[in-house]
Nucleic acid binder design. Structure first.
Lengths: 128, 128
DNA sequence: CTGTATCCAGGGTGATACTG
DNA sequence: CAGTATCACCCTGGATACAG
């Protein structure tokens, strides 16, 4: 069983390596956005729902549960009525957030170039 | 039509913003790995297939086509027999590669912490 | 307010076989 | 070698309604 990728260390290129699964877990736009949103402090469920435009209650909960399970997000429940729940990044989550947020920012910054590339690609297909 | 997110600039949190679609396109483990693999220079189709362990021909081609369409990868065909095709990152792709590769590296670096978090989470569920 | 419970459509993904 | 074509299938992800 080489699931640890030993003795050469972890290698995400190997499908049996745990780091491959971690990478897969991170490959979700809702994970990106959730972690990025929490980057500047704790937020309530409703706040997140409004910030992550278009997310359904199910996906929001599901995403938060995964992040909580993997130690990236901490969930705090206040036993009051109506319910009050807050989410915040753990130290590990904050470490990751710096990277994920850069990707988000990159996506925003390079829209024009990508849009342009797509237009050129389409033209090429028309000619053919 | 606020698809450009104007007048406040692009915002990936808004589902109608083009940057949201870009983020979604990047949310794929095969995109991560393909771009990371190409980071150190051009590669042939077969080389990529071997490097990206477990990828099917279909997914490899599909991923490369998306990256090519969006201007992140350049495809060069040598008209010889047997066929010879090489892929390499464009300038835009290299810019992105730096970020994506950091995520990949992060995934490898933090496996122990995440594994540990999962174990604790499981224990919690058992108690309940 | 913060979720859970269903249901459902759709397509991403893989496996396989095959062609130029 | 590089890629296409097909098929099936899971299962994600969305919509909705409802509960504590």
């Amino acid at each position: 069983m080489d699931s640890t990728c030993e003795p050469y260390g972890y290698d995400a290129f190997r499908r049996t390596c745990p780091s491959h699964a971690v990478l897969e877990m991170l490959s979700s736009k809702w994970v990106y956005l959730t972690v990025s949103a929490l980057r500047h402090g704790r937020m309530r469920n409703g706040e997140l729902a409004r910030k992550l435009e278009g997310i359904t209650p199910k996906m929001l909960t599901q995403t938060l549960r995964v992040l909580e399970r993997d130690g990236l997000v901490r969930r705090q429940v206040f036993p009051v009525i109506p319910p009050h729940v807050e989410y915040e990044l753990t130290a590990l989550g904050q470490d990751l957030a710096g990277l994920l947020d850069q990707i988000r920012s990159w996506s925003e910054r390079h829209v024009p170039e990508i849009r342009n590339a797509r237009l050129i690609a389409e033209r090429g297909r028309e000619v053919a």
